[in-house]
Amino acid sequence: MTGELFIRRLTMQLLPSLPEPSVLVLDNAPYHSQLTDDRRSPTSATKKADFISWLEYRRLPIPPGATRPELLLIRPQNRPKPQYTVDNIIRQWGHEVVRPPPAHPELNAIEQVSAYMKHHGRSLLHRFTRVDLQARLEEARLCATQSVWAGAVKRSREFEDWYWLSDNIQKPVGPLIINLDSDD
C-alpha cells in the first residue's frame, strides 16, 4: 500500500459510502501518516541549503556560519505540530479521525479484529493457493461481524481503564505555598 493508493481508495470508495458523520480510526502506518507539505521539517538527510530555506520560510533566526549539525539542533523546538494529509481529507468529508497511540495494539480495536480475522483465515487454510487464500480471506472478512467489533472496542476500553488505574493517576493538587521565613 502506498499513500497515493490509500488516498485514492479512501476518496473513491470508503468516504462516499460512509454515513456522515463517522469516526475513522487510523493506525500509524506510513501511508496514513504523510505530513502536509507545510508541516514537514528537515531530517538529518536534509541538505544545508534546504534547511536554511526551511528556517527562512518560518522566519527563524539563522546563526551566522552555523554548520549542518548546529542547524539540526534548532529543529526540535521549532518543529511544527504534525498535520496529516489523510486527516485533512477525512475532515473535509465531514468525518472525525482518531489515532490510537503507537505500539499499543491492545488499545486499537482494528488490531484486535485484524488478529481475529488472520487467525480465522489461517486455521482454515489447507492449501496455499491463490484461490484458497482469497476464499479464506473472504470468510475471515465475513466473520468480522458487528458483535466481533463491539467485543474488540469493549476490550480496548477495558485495557484503557486498566492503564489509567495502573498509572495511579490522581486528581491534581492545588497550589502548594511554602513560606521560607518560617521555621516549620
Rank of each mutant, 00 (worst) to 15 (best):
P100D: 10
Y84K: 02
S123V: 12
I89L: 04
I169S: 09
Q134A: 15
H104P: 01
S147V: 12
V113C: 07
E138R: 15
N88V: 08
P76R: 15
P100H: 12
L24D: 03
K154N: 01
E111W: 00
G65L: 05
H104T: 03
V153C: 10
L10S: 03
L71A: 15
I169L: 11
P30F: 13
L15E: 04
L71F: 14
I89D: 01
R68Y: 11
A140E: 02
R157A: 15
A66H: 10
W93I: 00
L125F: 01
L137A: 14
I110R: 01
E70V: 06
Q134L: 13
L176S: 10
L142V: 13
R8A: 14
A152Q: 08
H32Y: 02
R9F: 09
V173Q: 15
H32I: 00
L125P: 00
E20I: 13
S114E: 06
S123Y: 14
V86N: 04
R68L: 14
L124M: 03
L137D: 06
A109Q: 03
Y84A: 01
D132L: 07
S22T: 12
S147D: 14
K47G: 04
A49S: 09
L133Q: 11
I52D: 07
A66C: 08
D38N: 11
H104A: 09
L165N: 11
H32Q: 01
A66P: 01
Q77G: 07
L14K: 08
E106W: 12
E139P: 00
V131N: 12
K171H: 05
K48Q: 12
H119C: 09
D161T: 07
P30V: 14
V173R: 15
G174N: 10
R58Y: 04
N108P: 00
L26W: 03
Q83I: 00
R40M: 03
Q77K: 14
R9L: 12
L180W: 10
V153E: 07
R9G: 09
E4H: 10
F6A: 08
L125D: 02
H126Y: 07
P30K: 15
T145V: 08
L72W: 02
Y84C: 02
L73D: 15
R79H: 01
R39P: 00
R99S: 05
T46D: 04
Q92Y: 04
R79P: 00
R99V: 03
E111K: 02
E56L: 14
R59P: 00
S147M: 07
D161N: 10
E138F: 13
N78W: 14
H126E: 03
S44W: 06
D184P: 00
S22R: 08
P61D: 11
V98L: 15
W162N: 11
V153A: 11
S114G: 05
R58W: 06
R68W: 05
L35V: 02
R59W: 01
P101Y: 15
